[in-house]
Design a protein around this nucleic acid. Structure first.
Length: 578
DNA sequence: GCCGTTTTCGGCCCGACTGTTTTCAGTCG
């Protein structure tokens, strides 16, 4: 049985190959669109195939439905095979080079016989490329640069990497005297798990000065392009950053435009058209007029379109516009709703902080309770706790609590128990019963079959002592895919057992994926935002987990971090009795 | 390829920038 990801890969390739083939852009675009639609894990492709109901999905028509069914039954697509025969595989990869699209790939293939990135590099170096019609010396240089960058980073950056690069630049821009307002936009502002580049939007009457200032900032390695209102630079850490300057009156429009997503913007523009308006990054224009409607902020733009404010995290065209139109947007969780954190490691296993360090941090940051969760005994590589170490840590937590309870801070006795290969937990029930909560996580045997892994994880979440399922898939962003697992089955099992699902806030993980957060909530699951901290600095990762929760439409009612310690402990305790 | 209470054909969001041209194609977001 083919997997969703295999189908999406095939469709991605179809989209590029159709472009190479010179097909109607709307045809190739239809495949890219299908990739996005079918990436939604709440769509059960197998079931739709069985019921021949794929065309009931908006955006999937007869043609693509047939391709899906073909792929599902045969594991391949005839038209894809034909296209592959026409164009070497290396051409598809080439289109991932920045500034190098399908048209150029087709040209170098047909005119120079170039079939992969290595040959492209040689052609650019020895001058053949620059002699090609429509190409030139600068194009060749840009392509070489693009190839190097593609190799270095494969084009994407984790959100934390991007944020760390963005923050000082944003502060510098805000400090410039000609800048009235400055914000980050793009996938960073939408709190995606990774970003292709960093987008900034500035309100200024003097774009020229700001552009020059931006291009000369510390950390800028090269200026890729600079016009009157837009500049692109490459930062020293290999991330590209774009700055767009607009007049103050246009700022909200520009911010909304560059925040995206592209798909969300398309939908908003369509909505504008339906209302006799034209929407672009400069404004919302009544038909035939060139003076835009006034909008001091994004909420005003949405209001002009008959919608309540749609938070940036939601702007993925995943139902937010429909919900907004029905006045049914969720009241998203905010940082201030969070009163407790759980899943952090201490010196007892592989963490750097001492137990008490967490109490002190909580006090400084207005957090009422912190759930310690070190590794369990099977995690030998991480210094997992033997039963006697567990009891020693309990005694220490009791002592620390005596010192801090008057200051309104409480530490909870928890554990991150390995899920063993048969789905059991890592201590006997008696010891497990002494914890105030248990996070159960897979740390080994990633290569089980999907069936075995799913059975294993479901057995763990059904264990009466399991409070939280930790980092569900074991994925590492931009580095390692999650292990094979039927996540929706696991989510349903969690809902049935009352097991909380962690949104692991570590930016390397962000697991549960935000795309499934919404699904889990619909299934009736509770969620936790777990920093999985191994150092005090790791507690700041909560911001990324919060972003994922908000992207998944979570409210404070869905997230146990918003509960009091007593409520959380009672929930974990009562679950044991079920 | 998708879609449809004006439509089963003919649209499909819109603009900036670059490099190559000398009016535009390609790429990107």
């Amino acid at each position: 049985m083919p997997t969703r990801n295999q189908l999406l890969d095939a469709f991605r390739e179809m989209g590029v190959l159709l472009e190479l083939d010179g097909a109607n852009t709307f045809k190739s675009g239809a495949y890219s669109k299908a990739v996005r639609i079918l990436g939604d894990e709440s769509i059960d492709i197998g079931e739709h195939v069985q019921k021949h109901s794929l065309t009931s999905i908006n955006g999937i028509g007869k043609g693509i439905a047939e391709k899906i069914e073909e792929f599902w039954s045969k594991g391949s697509i005839g038209e894809l095979e034909e296209l592959r025969a026409k164009f070497p595989a290396g051409l598809v990869e080439m289109t991932a080079i920045p500034g190098f699209g399908a048209k150029k790939a087709r040209a170098v293939f047909q005119e120079l016989g170039v079939t992969n990135i290595e040959e492209l590099q040689r052609a650019a170096e020895d001058g053949r490329l620059a002699d090609l019609k429509g190409f030139g010396k600068k194009t060749a240089e840009k392509i070489l640069d693009g190839i190097a960058q593609h190799r270095r980073h494969q084009g994407r950056h984790r959100i934390d990497t991007a944020w760390q690069a963005a923050r000082p630049i944003l502060e510098a821009l805000r400090g410039h005297k000609a800048v009235q307002r400055a914000e980050t936009a793009g996938s960073l502002r939408r709190w995606r798990e990774s970003a292709k580049d960093i987008d900034f939007v500035c309100a200024t009457e003097n774009p020229k000065d700001v552009m020059e200032f931006f291009a000369a900032l510390e950390g800028v390695e090269a200026v890729i392009g600079r016009g009157d209102t837009k500049a692109s630079v490459r930062l020293a850490n290999g991330i590209n950053a774009d700055l767009r300057c607009v007049a103050p009156a246009q700022f909200a429009y520009a911010l909304a435009h560059f925040t995206g997503s592209k798909e969300h913007n398309v939908r908003l523009r369509q909505r504008a058209i339906e209302r006799g308006l034209k929407l672009n990054e400069y404004g919302l224009f009544p038909e035939g007029k060139d003076v835009p409607l006034e909008a001091k902020d994004e909420a005003a733009i949405h209001d002009h379109l008959g919608l309540p404010f749609i938070a940036p995290e939601l702007r993925e065209d995943m139902g937010e516009i429909e919900a907004a139109a029905d006045n049914a947007l969720p009241n998203l969780i905010v940082r201030e709703d969070i009163v407790g954190l759980m899943h952090m490691h201490t010196t007892y296993s592989d963490g750097q902080p001492a137990v008490e360090d967490y109490a002190a941090w909580a006090h400084r940051n207005g957090i009422a309770w912190m759930g310690i969760a070190d590794h369990s005994q099977s995690a030998v590589y991480a210094g997992g706790l033997k039963p006697e170490a567990v009891r020693a840590q309990w005694r220490e937590i009791d002592e620390v609590n005596k010192r801090w309870e008057k200051k309104g801070v409480r530490l909870l006795k928890g554990i991150e128990s390995d899920i063993l290969v048969d789905g059991s937990l890592d201590y006997d029930d008696e010891l497990l019963g002494g914890f105030e909560f248990v996070v159960a996580s897979v740390h080994s045997r990633f290569n089980l079959s999907e069936d075995e892994q799913t059975r294993r994880v479901i057995a763990a979440v059904e264990h009466p002592r399991t409070t939280i399922l930790g980092h569900m898939t074991g994925r590492l962003i931009l580095r390692r895919d999650g292990f094979a697992l039927r996540q929706k089955d696991v989510i349903k099992a969690c809902a049935a057992a009352g097991t909380v699902i962690e949104i692991n806030a570590n930016p390397h993980r962000l697991d549960l994926d935000w795309r499934l957060v919404h699904y889990a909530i619909d299934q009736g699951c509770l969620l936790s935002i777990g920093p999985d901290a191994h150092a005090i600095a790791g507690l700041d990762d909560v911001r990324y987990g919060l972003g994922a929760a908000r992207k998944g439409w979570a409210t404070k009612d869905d997230i146990v971090n918003c509960w009091s310690a007593d409520k959380f402990i009672a929930y974990a305790r009562d679950k044991k009795k079920r």
